[in-house]
């Protein structure tokens, strides 16, 4: 559903992302891990079409993101780490705005109402978003992305600011989406959550994808039965300790 080949991004002399390749199959939940400044957000922004790669290409479905951006973007949902919402709209108006922006039929509204209920936002849906807390903004931004029924969903640290119930609802929603065939990429620092939820894990350090696979595959590759957290720390410490160049 999503394929990225040899993604590289340079900002001047600095190489933020170097030769990253990844594939997301339909119905797969991919956990994207890495320490701060590893290049996760830059990679996700390239996958979302918000950044042009210096090298490499991205395909969403059968569409090249560079050559057929409109077709590719119709299939794509992206939730940044800081929720981007229009504060002068109410929650419901924002959802309708997103729906119309993606030219969705009106029956999507019922689906959106069920999301509002699931994320406990139905009572605040007619309030101006400017009065929402960070977590509520995160939820409404996520619902906005879900209403256009994306086939590929990119989530950059979506659990930040969510209350425990909201975080659980998010996990359940993502699982349900995967069962419907949606490919989900989630970037997070909550390793136990990633271990519990994700089908496959990718670990990024200093702009490079140093490991990728299921948790079991990673454990067998590195000859350990440690938890994902221990494995992650082991791998990132070893890589960051390497001399540059």
């Amino acid at each position: 559903m999503l394929r990225a080949d040899g993604l590289t991004k340079r900002f001047g002399d600095k190489e933020a992302v170097c030769d990253v390749s990844l594939t997301l199959k339909a119905g797969e939940l991919f956990g994207f891990l890495g320490p701060n400044g590893a290049g996760k957000t830059t990679t996700i922004r390239m996958l979302a079409g918000l950044l042009t790669p210096t090298r490499g290409e991205v395909r969403i479905g059968n569409h090249d993101l560079e050559r057929a951006p409109r077709e590719a973007k119709k299939l794509l949902g992206y939730l940044p780490d800081k929720p981007l919402v229009y504060e002068k709209l109410t929650g419901r108006e924002y959802i309708r705005f997103m729906m119309e922006l993606y030219d969705m039929p009106s029956d999507v509204l019922d689906e959106a109402e069920s999301y509002l209920h699931a994320f406990a936002l139905d009572s605040a849906a007619d309030d101006l978003i400017s009065g929402y807390s960070h977590g509520m903004k995160q939820k409404i931004a996520l619902i906005g992305q879900l209403t256009h029924r994306p086939r590929v969903l990119l989530l950059d640290e979506p659990t930040v600011g969510l209350d425990p119930k909201g975080a659980r609802t998010l996990r359940e929603t993502l699982r349900a989406l995967c069962e419907q065939g949606v490919a989900v990429l989630i970037s997070t620092h909550l390793l136990p959550v990633a271990e519990m939820m994700c089908d496959r894990i990718g670990i990024m350090v200093s702009g490079r994808m140093i490991a990728s696979g299921t948790v079991v595959e990673l454990q067998s590759r590195y000859h350990t039965d440690a938890s994902l957290e221990d494995l992650f720390l082991q791998l990132t410490d070893a890589t960051e300790g390497e001399p540059a160049g």
Partner: peptide, 13 residues
């Protein structure tokens, strides 16, 4: 403001 990102990621010319 920063919400221009929403317009950039949407299938809008």
């Amino acid at each position: 403001s920063a919400q221009v990102t929403l317009l950039m990621q949407a299938p809008a010319s």
